[in-house]
Design a binder for these strands. Sequence first.
DNA 1: TATGAATGAGGTTTCATTCAT
DNA 2: TATGAATGAAACCTCATTCAT
Lengths: 209, 209, 209, 209
Amino acid sequence: MGIYERKKREKENRRKEILRAARKVFSNKGFNASTMEEIALQAELSPGTLYLYFKNKEELHTFLSIEILKYLADEIQKVLSQDLSVENKIERFQDVFIDVYDYDSNILINLFHLQSGETLRNLSEDVLKQIKKYSALAHGAIIDVVKQGIDEGIFIDEHPVALADVLWASYAGIVLWVDSKRLLNDQKDFVKPTLKTAFRVIRKGLKKE
Amino acid sequence: MGIYERKKREKENRRKEILRAARKVFSNKGFNASTMEEIALQAELSPGTLYLYFKNKEELHTFLSIEILKYLADEIQKVLSQDLSVENKIERFQDVFIDVYDYDSNILINLFHLQSGETLRNLSEDVLKQIKKYSALAHGAIIDVVKQGIDEGIFIDEHPVALADVLWASYAGIVLWVDSKRLLNDQKDFVKPTLKTAFRVIRKGLKKE
Amino acid sequence: MGIYERKKREKENRRKEILRAARKVFSNKGFNASTMEEIALQAELSPGTLYLYFKNKEELHTFLSIEILKYLADEIQKVLSQDLSVENKIERFQDVFIDVYDYDSNILINLFHLQSGETLRNLSEDVLKQIKKYSALAHGAIIDVVKQGIDEGIFIDEHPVALADVLWASYAGIVLWVDSKRLLNDQKDFVKPTLKTAFRVIRKGLKKE
Amino acid sequence: MGIYERKKREKENRRKEILRAARKVFSNKGFNASTMEEIALQAELSPGTLYLYFKNKEELHTFLSIEILKYLADEIQKVLSQDLSVENKIERFQDVFIDVYDYDSNILINLFHLQSGETLRNLSEDVLKQIKKYSALAHGAIIDVVKQGIDEGIFIDEHPVALADVLWASYAGIVLWVDSKRLLNDQKDFVKPTLKTAFRVIRKGLKKE
DNA sequence: TATGAATGAGGTTTCATTCAT
DNA sequence: TATGAATGAAACCTCATTCAT
């Protein structure tokens, strides 16, 4: 590995450290309450250094969201290529959402937030394009599975995009909601049985009779 | 009407004006980007006056969320007391969520946000109590309908609370998600047919065969 | 008593109520931390009313200080006219200072503060004149006693003004200091024996051998 | 000198510059009328920088008072270790008080103010500890000298702590008072002869016959 | 590239004061 | 005369960002 290669890799690692630190801080305090100084401290770097890797606080935050959106898209696409029945694939999607939630409980709310008007308006063209890209990828994969299900006569005969929306939205909504309940009631873990029931109901809704 | 009555009503109106102005500004710019000065301007009042009615910016914001949570709870309870079949009640819930969304498209995301860890930690005991109260009211009403459905042999035989969670979460999730798509694609209205399909699927999931 | 008389007296009473309320609040919180609203509340009046009796917060505060300076001057002059030996008169001065302190423990520090550069610069001509007048009265009375003592061969043969300064300054300083110690050590009452010793020493310093 | 050493020293200097600027502004205008912006301007720094060195305005002000209390304590302790007779030491104390006054004429009043209830209540534990520490040091030194005087049969046979109180309180009181007179009469310097007389009287009071 | 001290714009908030009733 | 809601100027303070080292 040449010196150029090594430098590039170091740079990439540094970037990841910053993202890791930022995720931790943002998760704990939310966007506003988090300060660049705190993130720098967590990353064991100086505030100035953060700006060598990210244009500003907003972009740093957005990157995290895109990263997870990318992860979501990747995981969902992995399911697509697995040798599973339609039903099992749909079940696997559920695990992906729970995984993502376990990774960072604030991510789903951030995702919705990211896509809410307030934030969307302030994003650069480039970032927006990425969000759209990964969003489309993830959604496309789900649509494919749904289509397959319709073709096989397993799913009800509705517009596949709409069905994919239902899947995505309710899966996300359920994770968020069960988390809300957990927080409001000051519990440490959220009740996975409830989650399972919920997902089962959604899947049942998709199925023919 | 006595002078005391009139003063009280005037004060209440002023409060509402501030809330209206705040909702407008917060909706346009989000919590951070909105300034108290802007809200004051919108309410045609001076900045100092806002503080006669609300302790600070945070409380003003939280109030808006509570208000809508209260509205949601009220509307859902109204459905409960209507002379409708279980199935029609569930359908009416859908309208409530869409209504709330039409009233302020940021509200549902705010609701989730409000109940997310970050915000929850900074709320006063009193405010928390209110959130729990209205949350319980709304949820309780839904549970009642679900129970009725189970008793009548219409809904699947699952734990009613879990089923109510599914309803609530997916309804909210779907509205949020369809809104996200709308924003990402720069459309003005979100596609109601998609919504309808989505809600239909959820309801189907709840029903016995 | 005519209606004019009564009105005038009522006005005077209202004034005194405000002063009493202001003294209480200023004593508890100091000038800055005290708000006009708080004083109004304490006086069971509305903020606006305070301004019918005093031009502004500063003047209200100054009035309190002048009032006590006047009280000090009066009490000291009373001693002057009593049929007492020089020594007893000096002893009585001590009681006056303790009285004043008991009346309001912040008054002496306020007095010094009042006469410190910061405050002095912001006072109106009229107020300044009053301060000078009462200050001169009080000081004059002390000088008279001191002079008498020198004439009678009881006090050391120094410039009477300087001796009067010593009396005044150390009496005030001692009360302040013993109060400081009390506060630093979180005691409820300050130690009167210490005070007595202190005053005795000062008097001894004044006396010929 | 290593780079670490230099940085530390620079930081210390910056701190001192801020304190110097603050002293100047506070002396001119008093605590309230002084603004952080003005202090920053005087220190040729930006307002934000002040907050890198002091938590807030209050702390900055308190620091000034502590600094001078420390100086007082130091100077008084220096006298203690000098090879002087008890009488000369007591005389030297007088110079210390005048020195301190010359350094900043507001300091003594601030000291008393600092130790008055109002301010004391708002200080942090740490700051309070420092005040008590230096206060005890200064007072302890004076007590030592007084004890020596009693042992040598020079001072009257009273409780040494009480005598030390007299010394401290009257010395401070006299400086304050003579300054008050100076200000009231719009003189530039205060009359040192008067001061001398005053101090002499106090000392005489302490002495046996 | 990394630092971190310094910046300074701008936000929140307070509160003395006013004025219509 | 008394009210007290409203004012709005002005202060404190924060923190994203810069830049000399």
